[in-house]
Design a protein around this nucleic acid. Sequence first.
RNA 1: GGUGGGAUGGCAGAGCGGCUGAAUGCGACGGUCUUGAAAACCGUUGAUGGGUCAAACCAUCCGGGGGUUCGAAUCCCUCUCCCACCGCCA
Length: 424
Amino acid sequence: MLDLKRLREDPDSVRAGALKKCFPDRAAAVDRVLELDARVRELLPRIEGMRAEQKQAGKQLGKLQGAEREAHLEGQKALKADLQALEQEEKQLQLELRSQLLLVPNLPDPEVPEGEDDTANVEVRRIGEAPAFDFEPKAHDDLALARGWLDVERAADMAGSRNYLLFGDLVLLQDAVLRLAIDHLVSKGFIAVDPPLLVRDKIMEGTGFFPGGEEQTYRCPEDGLNLIGTAEVPVTSIHAGEILDEAQLPRRYVARSMCFRREAGTYGKDTKGLYRVHQFQKVEQVIVDVADEARSREHHEAITRNSEEVLEMLGLPYRVVAVAGGDLGVPQAFKYDIECWMPSREAFGETHSASRFYDYQARRLNIRYRPEGGKKPLHCHTLNNTVLASPRILIPLLEVHQQADGTVRVPEALRPYLGGREVL
RNA sequence: GGUGGGAUGGCAGAGCGGCUGAAUGCGACGGUCUUGAAAACCGUUGAUGGGUCAAACCAUCCGGGGGUUCGAAUCCCUCUCCCACCGCCA
């Protein structure tokens, strides 16, 4: 969430930010927050004054005896009743204030492209060439089906649409590519994490997915738990409520996890193949560091590069785009998507998403650090990026490296993970 | 699932219902000493909100929520988590 002080001092830019992100109703939350805040600030001094009085008088009461004590007691009881009424009102206001504040989106950075949706995204760079085939290339699912690597019909029978069964070498390939991704990040000093996949509501709220993302989430209300849609959620929350030493920062984590998404409201969209599915595996990188915008920006470039390096090792052509305001989520300040070339689509398809948040998530999760010199704790900055998500990455991997006979070339970097095999 | 014990400041760990925002130790920070460092010694050191140019000052916070009381870290209820043992089971 945003700093209430900042919102108080500069509501216009917060409102403008929400509009740039195409959240008009959330821009309205800004006004609700201001109104509630004003009422709290009017009420609070009165309550504090009364409490001070109660405290003082109470201390004297402890020393009094007899009739004097009785008289005093009456006054205290009356004060208590008045105070309780005001406190009740204040509590209500604070609850409402917080829930409205949670709705206010993070401010988009100035360089976020204007625009309503992903058609306004701006290409930053393009690496690699779309492959030219001297035969009729297959789509990944047709290829996989022909090789007995994929079955969507039986998967749908047991689990509904947008599910899949993978078999044989494709399973091994998937494992290889995920492991390559982890190893690459570990070699850069990231700490490998295996996080919980079911998390509490407040963790979903802390990372900015709730309120708003409930529809996209598989929920277990009996237990108050939710299946994560990305390891960003548990990993960013590792240090929730803590005050870290500056010397411990930055924290760099890389997590491999299963991810679950309901994909509500996407009926009929991307129904073919393995592009949009309900469960998938993802290797995700997360950084928690000091509250320094310049450093956040450096980290953002670095984590984007990390993922690009993996794509380059895999021999996949891709481009990086700066995501437009209307395509940004509530908590992000800026986001790069990496899109891989997918021959069957004759287009780039999103495979990665690198975001920086500044202190927006850290404020919600209350992740702080103590700056060198023992000064006041500050809220950290957080960032994250996909390293690799499968089965989506299998789309370009199969399609780009396919051969005329239906086999698939294994990129050199992957061979050690597949027993040295050059072709699948 | 059952029973018992526990949750206090960055960490460890005390705490008769009013004199406790909290002893003590560690750590951190500042200083003395030293060529420099270590050790030793002295001092400072919780968070949040309000307030102030900055202070002073005021309020709140002892796992979360609720209650008893004029007054709660301290008593009661409840939830969560941790630890131990029993039962059950991958």
